[in-house]
Design a binder for these strands. Structure first.
Length: 219
DNA sequence: GACCAGGCACATC
DNA sequence: GATGTGCATGGT
C-alpha cells in the first residue's frame, strides 16, 4: 500500500532527496525567455548550443531578437530543432515584449501577473501555457506553478492516473491552491520535478531507483 | 535504426 | 471537446 502525500509533502521529499536545483540555468531574464521557447519539446543540451550561437552574435536582448531576420535566427537556432517554427515564435514573442512591455525584462514590473499571463496567451502565437508560465516564474519572478510533461508523468505513476489527460490549468491550480504562494518554492518545485523525471527511465512504466518509490500523490 | 526530449498551432471529426 | 499531425535536431 502506497503512502499518500499532498503537494507540500511531495515537495519536502523531493528537496530532501535531490537537493536544490538552482534554476533557471541562464545569465539574464532575457536568456530565460529565449530558452523557454527554444526548449519546447526539445532536450536542453541542444538548446544550450543554440543559445550560445545567438549569444556569440550579440543577439541576446529584447531589441535584437525582435528585429533579427528570420533566416538569421533559424540558422543559429538549428541545433535546437524545429528551427523555422521557433524563429517565428522567438520573433513573435520579443516583438510583442518590446512593443507592449519595453526594451528589457525589468519593465514587466509595471504589469500584474494575471494580466501578463492572459495577454501572453491571447496575443503571442507560439507561447502556450507552459512557455508563458516558465517565463513568468523563471524570468519575471512571479508565483506561477509550471506544469510540464515530467509533472504529468510523475503524477500518473504516483497516484494521479488521470494526470496525463487533465487540463493544464486544472493541474496548475491544484498545486497552487495546495501550496503557499511563494515564487522561490514554485521555482524549486518545478525544477525538482524535472530532475526527478529525468532520473527515471521514461519508457518503463515505473523506475526502481525512483526517489518517489512507494508514494501516491493526493491532489 | 528506433526512440526520446522541460510544446504549440492547426485540421478534422 | 477529443484526437491526430507537422515541426527537426542530437543523444542513447
Amino acid at each position: 500500500m502506497a503512502r499518500r502525500v499532498n503537494p507540500a509533502e511531495l515537495y519536502n521529499i523531493l528537496f530532501e532527496r535531490l537537493g536544490p536545483q538552482h534554476w533557471w540555468p541562464a545569465d539574464s531574464p532575457e536568456e530565460v525567455m529565449l530558452g523557454a521557447i527554444l526548449t519546447q519539446n526539445t532536450a536542453w543540451r541542444n538548446v544550450e548550443t543554440a543559445i550560445a550561437n545567438l549569444k556569440e552574435r550579440g543577439l541576446l536582448s529584447v531589441a535584437a531578437l525582435a528585429s533579427a531576420r528570420k533566416n538569421t535566427l533559424a540558422s543559429l537556432m538549428r541545433p535546437a530543432g524545429y528551427y523555422n517554427v521557433k524563429a517565428d515564435r522567438v520573433r513573435n514573442y520579443f516583438r510583442w515584449f518590446l512593443a507592449e512591455i519595453g526594451p528589457d525584462a525589468s519593465h514587466a514590473q509595471n504589469f500584474a501577473t494575471g494580466v501578463l499571463r492572459r495577454r501572453m496567451l491571447a496575443e503571442i502565437s507560439g507561447t502556450g501555457p507552459e512557455t508563458a508560465d516558465s517565463i513568468l516564474l523563471y524570468a519575471l519572478d512571479r508565483p506561477v506553478f509550471v506544469i510540464d510533461a515530467y509533472t504529468r508523468r510523475i503524477l500518473s505513476r504516483h497516484g494521479v492516473k488521470a494526470a496525463g489527460s487533465m487540463k493544464y490549468d486544472e493541474l496548475r491550480l491544484a498545486f497552487q491552491s495546495a501550496l503557499p504562494r511563494h515564487t522561490g518554492l514554485f521555482n524549486e518545485y518545478h525544477a525538482l520535478l524535472v530532475r526527478c523525471g529525468k532520473l527515471c527511465n521514461t519508457r518503463a512504466p515505473s523506475c526502481s531507483a525512483c526517489p518517489l518509490d512507494g508514494l501516491a500523490v493526493k491532489l
